[in-house]
Design a protein around this nucleic acid. Structure first.
Lengths: 340, 340
DNA sequence: GCACCCATTGTTAACGTTCACAGTCTCTTT
DNA sequence: AAAGAGACTGTGAACGTTAACAATGGGTGC
């Protein structure tokens, strides 16, 4: 193989030579600079087309100090929530002309998040969105690389960065009040893992609603978001006397719970009413269709980009805004008025 | 100091000055070049630490012509399959020291895929994985940017690029033969949308199994992967006489179908047996727990990176390999021997 | 007719790294 | 003692783009 065979892709200078102009004029055409004669522009475009030239964004990023790339740090993008959020982020970012470089963490701990932020900083991203649903991840935001705008999603509001999140407390309150409104004496809760901010927000809202109504507050049953943990919780709750209403911290666990209830011969909603959280696409077709609280993950993703771009424009990172997306209650067939 | 209080982040030359060496020596330390005296290395590392220096990977990419970034083009990463595949890709890529830049397409058509490939090429990615489950996406691979290694996931095997995929035909055959083995006279099929290669592979496997057994081949019922379309298919099948076994092309549609059957009073598996496809985390907790065919999406993602990295090393893009991941049959409670 | 302005184009110098090569120094070997 | 081989370090030139400024030419106002 001859060395000349290895033909490098054309650069601006090649286009310039073919079009009979300087490389700077080519650059001007590419960047829609106003002061280029129409005839020249046409010639340059023809040369670009002829050579199949593509601009080298790496070289451009070096000189402009802007990569037009945003970084996303997330946890287990296999789950519906993170996946939808990241999807919303990516769509919004691309619509604004940015690429998205993603880092999915297997486990979320302070070191992992810090490393991820470091990688992205080296790579020269213009801004970062951290999907930080766990307290430990939110903490890691304390030591982030200076000079890069950061927005957290579902993060801790006490931190030092801007945050977009769904109002978990309000969502849990809606769910609990709905059940109380149907005449249930109190409401049991299957909660998410303890390090998760979302899990804690939902516990808080549930507690608040029960407190406000002056009802007994049962111990929450532990879960880990998985259908299996919901199944186990369901087995336990089915055996307990006096349970008529359960608020489950997400739809997947609710599915497991429904399965356990079905196996134990517990009728839903005849004997026990169940409310979930998230409104995943499947929950409308559970048996019975699940009453739940909808989170608009797509909106969360889009807002996080809005916030990030705003922060990048102003250059001020001290702005530290908060954006709260309201949850939406979805009544379906898994809840009913209590029979006396 | 200079009047500009906008202090730029330090560069190699700054480190070199502090450490009293040349910038090239700093570079050598950073790249673990062997011939650096221990004492010098220590001094450089100290200077790096003191200044909080981070290497600029953009500048590095410009000169090395390698960005250590891989591109991923995918369709609707909200779905479990694509999301899991992309997750597997990202994990494997990062383990190999690569970043992942992702482009999620809202609709998958030739122009969209071509644009995405173009963006990634401009950005200077070292290789691209295209998750191309639709025929139109597979076609778009025909006009891909030259010089960049590409691997397709779930793509067309007739194309010109390497492909990693799950054996859809085999999976469908396993599902269908399982049902025939339980004594069912024939098996009905709820298929996926027609442009999807996976949908067509599953139809093919189902047909082949029925043909081989000399059974009647009913018209497949159309679906679009969504639970709702499965629900509608279920309503229709529940009304038809003689249906005792249904193979549904994915678990989400199977969920909708189960719901429709439950509403119509059709017992599963008592009167009709149902098999799904994918084995999403939820399907074990459907009512009844769904017999299905497991696809190892994570493995598909990992293999695609293996293939891509191999192709990048050799520099040969003519290799055009095929890697087929076997599906795995999962028997659960939604199928039973036919009663006579 | 002259100075001036504006549109258009070209020239040169960054950006921050790695590569290729040239030194210098020390230690062996003959 | 001279020469050669390593080990270590430094120098200058890329990489492909944009920014800053200079240069050209034709029109305009007086």
């Amino acid at each position: 193989m001859s060395p000349s065979q290895e033909r490098r892709s054309p650069v601006m200078a090649d286009v310039a030579r073919v079009a009979g102009v300087s490389h700077q004029t080519v650059s001007r055409v590419l960047n829609d600079h106003p002061n280029v004669r129409d005839e020249t522009r046409t010639r340059v475009l023809a040369a670009i087309d002829q050579l199949g030239y593509r601009r080298n964004l790496v070289a451009r990023a070096l000189v402009t100090r802007h990569s037009r790339t945003l970084g996303v740090v997330s946890f287990d993008t296999t789950l519906y929530g993170p996946a939808s959020t990241v999807y919303g982020i990516e769509q919004a970012a691309r619509a604004a002309g940015y690429f998205v470089s993603i880092v999915s963490l297997r486990t979320i701990d302070r070191a992992g998040v810090r490393d991820a932020l470091g990688y992205l900083a080296e790579q020269g991203v213009d801004g970062i969105v951290v999907v930080a649903p766990q307290r430990s991840a939110a903490l890691a935001l304390a030591d982030l690389p200076v000079g890069i705008p950061v927005v957290a999603v579902e993060g801790d509001h006490d931190g030092d960065v801007s945050v977009v999140s769904v109002d978990q407390v309000e969502g849990a309150r809606l769910a609990t009040e709905h059940l109380l409104g149907l005449g249930h004496e109190t409401v049991w809760h299957v909660r998410g893992p303890s390090d998760w901010l979302e899990a804690e927000g939902r516990v808080e809202g549930w507690r608040a609603a029960l407190s406000a109504a002056g009802r007994a507050i049962p111990d929450p049953v532990a879960g880990d978001w998985s259908p299996r943990s919901g199944y186990r919780a369901g087995q336990r709750l089915a055996e307990m006397a006096g349970v008529t209403a359960v608020f489950v911290a997400n739809d997947q666990m609710a599915l497991g719970l429904l399965r356990a209830f079905a196996e134990a011969g517990v009728d839903v909603p005849g004997r026990i009413s169940v409310v979930g959280f998230d409104d995943i696409p499947e929950s409308e077709f559970f048996s019975p269709p699940l009453t739940t609280v909808r989170q608009d993950f797509g909106a969360v993703g889009r807002y996080s980009i809005d916030l990030l771009l705003g922060q990048m424009e102003t250059g001020r990172d001290g702005s530290r805004e908060r954006l709260v997306v309201p949850p939406q209650f979805k009544a379906r067939a898994s809840t009913s008025r209590v029979r006396r």
